[in-house]
Design a binder for these strands. Structure first.
Lengths: 258, 258
DNA sequence: TAGTGGTCTAGACCACACG
DNA sequence: GTGTGGTCTAGACCACTAC
């Protein structure tokens, strides 16, 4: 009884939204109301929401249900939470990368858009690649192993992407020193390796637990996956790999002539 | 005590994975163990997991914690749940679309990959567009309103994408009949409108509540967003809009010559 | 009818941030 | 220490599926 009255009071006090169909679960109804408030600008980007305890009181529901509503908003990228501090409305504008320059002058694009780009090498190994990489680099069973490099790309101290590259033996050998600290494209450039063509694809996946820890995002947050194989002249593969980037920070653009 | 013993017993019985660092929350530890089992093929795609009750017993935790672990797997797109039936390991391979044909012969790509493509019109309106659309179509304040069309794209009865298109007044008028039932590209083609260039961008967003209901995905599931402006000769904008597609069904590919 | 997942409650304890 | 979010429990009731 009391809670029903409270709920009605609050819902009219908090929002002038029309009542939603009652078939919706409570946590959805609440997260949608909060979403409306956020999008109406009643909470500014960066602003703190009321505490879970207070929201529970305001909506007349248990803290568990409020937590679920806030989890809904997190899944949609609308809020973030910080233990001991509170829940905050998300902000942020996207950095765009051109698909036309594959292997991509990430560093240049970052600088142009006002960020300091930096990479941190996670692994650099001489190993036997999985079959799909063998195929992309056009290698045969007897060929020597490839160089694998894995690194994190930072924009202003925020990790925004993980890049995994595979280089054929001959090329990786020449680059091993530079690859550890420089962006892939600029490394190739200083070695006089010019790219002539590329096959690329873009998809999106939810962050696994491991990726969510490396990129500091919630489990399941969308990541953009940029897959590429780059060729030098005569269609010789130079490098293949993928860039997994935070979708809240990045997008890819292209101009097409038909 | 008891639960700790049970947990150890089960974890050695269920998995031979090395013990994970104890700082991890229980629900993460459990979902990661289940993930390992799934990826090791101990549960086939489509196979049913044990019930939440049984898993709770097996791991020695409450049903709530098991539900949270399963929610983690859902966020990662690894399992789906069906009320009254159970939890099932996900399957599925992706349909790829070429970025080179913007506005894109979705229907042709679908047919080539063995699916029956179909669209369902949600809206067709003559309205005043938001400013970003005005800009993309190069319209001025005094210009007549545009045609807005919104539709769902199906592959074999599964909704895989939502397309939102804006057409300039002159063009929308000619197309209104066909647009309701046909794919955009094929409609333009039959009207003799040839596309000469396009600006496109790709990003990814988590599904909002509304989108999650339209595309039958869980809240927050990654969606690919393909934004486009297409031009006919003389750089005249013909249409702009976006395609929001299920990332578990779709990816975009392109060949690039540098 | 029995089994399953979906929602919600009430309450406990922990870990972190801030004054 | 107080307040905040993070984790976990035990148990209730509902809605859907299958037999």
């Amino acid at each position: 009884m009391t809670s029903a009255v409270l709920y009605d009071d609050v819902s009219s006090a908090m929002a002038s939204t029309p009542p939603r169909p009652p078939k919706q679960p409570l946590h959805i109804s609440i997260s949608e109301q909060l979403k409306d408030h956020i999008e109406a600008g009643q909470y500014e980007p960066g602003e703190k929401l009321p505490s879970e305890f207070d929201l529970g009181g305001a909506f007349g529901v248990s803290r568990t249900t409020i937590r679920r509503a806030i989890a809904n908003l997190m899944k949609q990228g609308l809020v973030t939470t910080q233990q001991g501090k509170g829940s905050f409305v998300s902000d942020r504008h996207k950095i765009s990368f051109s698909m036309a320059n594959p292997l991509m002058q990430f560093d240049i694009a970052l600088k142009h858009q006002g960020y300091v780009g930096r990479i941190q090498s996670l692994r650099f190994q001489h190993t036997h690649p999985p079959i799909d990489v063998m195929k992309k680099l056009e290698l045969r069973d007897g060929d020597p192993p490839v160089y694998l490099q894995e690194k994190i790309i930072y924009a202003d101290e925020s990790p925004i992407a993980i890049e995994v590259d595979y280089f054929p033996d001959a090329i990786g050998e020449r680059l091993s020193e530079q690859l550890a600290s420089r962006f892939t494209y600029s490394t190739l450039e200083t070695q006089g390796i010019k790219l002539h063509a590329a096959k690329v694809s873009l998809e999106s996946i939810p962050a696994s637990y491991e990726l969510s820890e490396q990129l500091l995002v919630p489990l399941g947050m969308p990541l953009l996956v940029f897959n590429f194989v780059a060729y030098q002249e005569k269609r010789i593969p130079v490098v293949c790999g993928k860039v997994l980037s935070r979708s809240d920070w990045t997008c890819y653009t292209s101009h097409i002539e038909i």
